[in-house]
């Protein structure tokens, strides 16, 4: 049962909530006209629209290059995060002792520690390890940052997994490795996939650690955007931002549609 929707107080609250949601979304949409300005500085187009800032993205190889670097780093970091996070989640779930709980909490640290703090640490130690401004260095740091998110989503998936399935497999003669691979993994795949999406986005969007441990050799998209904002705000950043917003919009809409379809199917079954 829900509250009386017709009451005046609730109508006012709903109005307020919509205003907050406008505040969340509207500023982002203003980037779209700004990206179409014919001027060389950030402004609203007054008479004509221009695609020159989009052309810059294609003509300037450094933009394409940074997208490529980001894609390499984010996909490799996702791999590391998924591997570490999934193993930990399975282990902790199966052991379920006080000790494994402590291990799980320690593994969540990269999510909680402020980025600037571990950025300093990475920088100091990466210099010694010879990992500064290298792909392995950035991938490793990003993988560790993404790992807790995989750990959480996989742990959530495991909470719904029936332990007896695993015991049945073991009783029927499957080894531990076979049980994990053939019984457990297929069941928790949705959790792993969700975690992987988080880990990818964490890396794709990461700037603070990147600022400290890369310089010229590894040059990711956030780094390029950061530099574009830092020196007298280049409007081609608005073009990139618009593309980002559109991609996010499409992917999110897709996930909503898929989820609704799944719900409809379930209720039909």
């Amino acid at each position: 049962m829900r509250l009386r929707r017709d009451s005046l107080g609730f109508a006012a609250a709903a109005c307020g909530a919509w205003i907050v949601l406008l505040y969340l979304v509207l500023p982002l949409l203003f980037v779209v006209p700004v990206s179409l300005t014919p001027q060389r500085y950030l402004s609203l187009p007054d008479r004509e629209l221009s695609l020159r800032h989009y052309a810059t993205l294609i003509d300037d190889p450094s933009w394409i290059n940074s997208i490529l670097h980001s894609a390499i780093v984010a996909s490799s970091a996702t791999l590391i995060a998924v591997l570490m996070g999934t193993l930990t989640a399975i282990g902790c779930w199966r052991i379920a002792s006080r000790l494994s709980e402590v291990a799980r909490i320690i593994m969540l640290a990269p999510m909680i520690v402020p980025p600037i703090v571990h950025a300093l640490g990475f920088y100091r130690v990466w210099v010694r390890f010879g990992l500064i401004d290298t792909f392995p260095g950035l991938i490793l740091a990003h993988g560790i940052k993404g790992m807790p998110f995989v750990l959480i989503t996989v742990a959530a998936a495991l909470a719904n997994f029936d332990l007896r399935l695993e015991q049945a497999a073991r009783n029927l003669g499957a080894s531990l490795a076979q049980t994990v691979r053939l019984v457990l993994l297929p069941c928790i795949l949705p959790g792993i996939a969700t975690g992987a999406v988080f880990a990818f986005i964490i890396s794709w969007d990461e700037i603070v650690v990147t600022l400290f441990i890369t310089s010229r050799h590894v040059y990711t998209l956030p780094r390029k955007i950061w530099d574009g904002i830092a020196d007298n705000i280049n409007p081609s950043v608005a073009a990139v931002a618009t593309i980002f917003i559109l991609i996010t919009l499409v992917l999110l809409a897709l996930s909503f549609l898929l989820r609704r379809e799944a719900r409809v199917e379930r209720s039909a079954a």
């Binding site: 500023p27 203003f30 950030l42 955007i225 904002i229 705000i233 608005a238 931002a241 980002f244 917003i245």
Partner: peptide, 14 residues
């Protein structure tokens, strides 16, 4: 889900 840099940039542009 929208990039933190994009959001900060949007506010600067605005």
């Amino acid at each position: 889900w929208i990039s933190i840099l994009v959001r900060a940039f949007a506010w600067v542009a605005l």
